[in-house]
Design a protein around this nucleic acid. Structure first.
Length: 453
RNA sequence: GUGAUUGUAGCUCAGCUGGUUAGAGCGCUGGUUUGUGGAUCCAGAGGUCGCCGGUUCGAACCCGGUCUUUCACCCCA
């Protein structure tokens, strides 16, 4: 007999964890629906050709590939083996597990373009898999909760994303967090303004580490990546910018005055704020972070990232605007914007903050107990009466000592125990014991239902 | 993928520089209570010391490999 174990980076979820996960998921789901998003699901596996090349070289490495069924090595020659794993991959595997929900969604939109009504708002809550090295808040199997709208470039969508994030966080009782907001065009503009046009990619990667490693180290890294000393001097004033919104915007308008794209980015951001204020909303929890980058290369406009303060978990949500997501699948010119909640990380955050509400009354309310065969049969006859009244009721299935049955109720934190003995049977009643207070009263079935409901 | 780190009873951990039958708390099982749980008391069960191999008279402890945990880098929810 071998000891069973789980694959690296995967977890089981017990009853308590599942109750908490559904609490988070229901909150998110309800919010998405409130904003008019419709749910879809896509298969766990996609054709490898759908997935590869969408996440960069790093991403391709992290894809879980599925071995072909049957004799998977029949097409592999000795010469292929010589060339290494790259040469045999497409001969042994043609499917892979989904890496995120955005790419499968893009595929879905392209395949169903004639049936969909645009702008199309969909949400999707499913697990994704990454062959990453597990760490705190990082798993190989985890859930994403995506909401995207495609077929419109309206900035109302951006504003609504902010509102959805805020609503979910409020419902979950989280107050100390910030929705970091930036615009890819501003980053492009900054690269242009400092004389390093087109290099916003490496610029972002390095600058993203500012909090962690400091300006000096960031400078070092940028020099290594081929940035000019003079460019970095121009960049310096941005790094030390204050936190005031208006101040930042004014500064950027001046700083980016020669960059069409950059100014467009600033304008878009202002518009999002404008829409929020027309909706009667404030800018609470919003943090315009000029240095927010985010890795995914397909973002072209707004970018979001949400961090909860005072916890060791990384970002719990992120997203952005993409102008041409479906282009690779042959449908160009479809703009979209979307974001995603990481349930597993939200769980870790709530856990760390001890912010889960006390156990809800989702479990059994009443356990019917008895002493002997007669009582057992009496209890059986009562089961449906309680259940039909809407009370979650169970009976201890094996005839054991009544102590056992009480212990069972105690461990499962069942609040009421109904006792079926001689006296109760002869009077057609039931003794109901409140397991918290210890009080016990003999009641008619009707009265019992009234008490427990 | 690179560099570290962890692994002893169901859980949390002891186990001194390698030396005889590996311990504790909690939990679990049974009893104290033959119509009653959560508290007390009594008794008991449970471990191939992650796995494989090596060094040694002798390994939980030393060495190598492997898996797993956690962490940094990379990247990300």
């Amino acid at each position: 007999m071998q000891k069973p174990s789980l694959p690296k980076g995967t977890r089981d979820f017990g009853p308590v964890q599942m109750a908490r996960r559904t609490y988070i998921l229901d909150t998110i789901k309800e919010t998405f629906q409130l904003f008019g998003y419709q749910q879809i699901e896509t298969p766990a596996m996609e054709n490898l050709s759908t997935l590869t090349g969408k996440y960069g070289d790093e991403g391709d490495q992290l894809l879980f590939k599925i071995l072909n069924s049957g004799d998977f090595s029949k097409d592999v020659s000795a010469a292929d083996l010589e060339k290494g794993s790259g040469a045999i991959l497409n001969k042994v595997s043609e499917k892979g597990l989904r890496y995120d929900l955005t790419v499968p969604f893009a595929r879905y939109v392209v395949m169903n373009r004639n049936e969909l009504t645009f702008p199309f708002k969909r949400y999707q809550i499913q697990p994704v898999w990454r062959a990453d090295r597990p760490q705190k808040g990082r798993y190989r199997e985890f859930y994403q909760c995506d909401a995207d709208v495609v077929g419109t470039d309206s900035l109302v969508c951006e504003a609504e994303i902010v509102l959805m994030i805020r609503r979910v966080f409020t419902k979950l009782g989280l107050k100390d967090y910030s929705i970091k907001l930036n615009n890819r065009k501003i980053l492009t503009g900054i690269a242009e303004a400092i004389g390093e046009a087109g290099k916003e990619g490496p610029l972002c990667v390095a600058i993203d580490k500012l909090d962690k490693i400091g300006w000096e180290k960031v400078k070092e890294e940028l020099l290594q990546r081929g940035f000019e000393e003079s460019s970095l001097d121009k960049l310096a004033p941005l790094v030390s910018l204050g936190s005031d919104f208006a101040e930042k915007i004014e500064f950027l308008k001046e700083f980016l005055k020669d960059s069409q794209t950059g100014l467009k980015g600033v304008e878009e951001l202002e518009q999002v704020f404008g829409i929020l204020s027309k909706m009667g909303e404030n800018l609470d929890n919003i943090d315009f972070d000029i240095m927010l980058a985010r890795g995914l290369s397909y973002y072209t406009g707004a970018i979001f990232e949400v961090k909860v303060h005072g916890v060791s978990i990384g970002s719990v949500s992120g997203g952005g605007r993409y102008d041409n997501l479906t282009g690779v699948f042959g449908l160009p010119g479809v703009s979209g914007v979307g974001f995603s909640f990481g349930v597993d990380r939200l769980y870790d955050v709530l856990d760390e903050l001890k912010a889960f509400p006390a156990e809800t009354h989702s479990g059994t309310r009443l356990l019917l107990t008895y002493f002997d065969q007669k009582g057992f049969e009496y209890a059986l006859s009562l089961l449906n009466l309680f259940r039909n009244a809407g009370i979650k009721t169970e009976i201890y299935p094996n005839q054991v000592k009544i102590q056992k049955q009480f212990e069972f109720a105690n461990k499962k934190e069942i609040p009421y125990v109904g006792i079926c003995g001689e006296e109760e049977i002869s009077t057609g009643k039931i003794s109901v014991k409140d397991m918290v207070s210890g009080e016990q009263v003999k009641l008619s079935i009707k009265e019992a239902i009234g008490k427990i409901l």
